[in-house]
């Protein structure tokens, strides 16, 4: 009886495979049909600006340190008001593994990963993105966040104690008297 069972099993599998003719095809025909990318997709890295339009990056080097492949290079400088910003900011995307650690490390939400992966180049050198290639005009994922507006640091146009949720500085000598 084993043989009848086997024949039935073979015929059944032929039937099952045949029924796949009426199933939906799994293929996504990529260039014609774009796949859905999740909002948190880790793709091309951008540098965002705060709501006022100034660069968010304060050049703390945490992203460069967090980067497991060492593809981020930057140099910090300061403007005349004491505000820090990167003099140059370079990401070598031919090295980048899109792990998102830079985004996690960033204290000012400046560096962010976007749902875009179509960045092929014919020349490897073209995958090295400079600051002007990385900077976008908007605030990215955190539209209202402005580091200098919440931080206690004094910069041009904002003195000590003028940040959000910050009380005016107290004079410790006055307390002693």
């Amino acid at each position: 009886m084993q043989i009848i069972e086997n024949i039935y099993s073979i015929l059944r599998s032929i039937g099952l495979v045949f029924m796949h003719a009426f199933h939906k095809r799994e293929t996504v025909q990529y260039p014609d049909e774009k796949p859905y990318l999740a909002p948190r997709w880790r793709g091309r890295i951008v540098l965002t600006r705060d709501p006022d339009g100034a660069e968010r990056c304060v050049g703390c080097y945490l992203c460069a340190v967090a980067c497991p492949v060492g593809c981020i290079a930057l140099q910090t400088t300061e403007d005349e008001t004491g505000r820090r910003y990167p003099e140059f900011f370079r990401i070598n995307f031919s090295r980048c593994i899109f792990c998102g650690y830079c985004e996690e490390a960033c204290p000012t939400y400046a560096i962010q990963l976007t749902p875009d992966f179509e960045m092929c180049e014919y020349k490897r050198q073209n995958l090295v993105y400079e600051k002007e290639d990385l900077l976008i005009s908007g605030p990215g994922k955190y539209p209202d966040y402005n580091f200098y507006r919440v931080a206690g640091l004094a910069i041009g146009g904002k003195g000590k104690g003028e940040a959000e949720n910050e009380s005016a500085p107290v004079d410790p000598r006055g307390l002693l008297l």
Partner: peptide, 8 residues
């Protein structure tokens, strides 16, 4: 073959 394997 592709049809029966849900491909194109």
């Amino acid at each position: 073959l592709a049809l029966w394997q849900d491909r194109y």
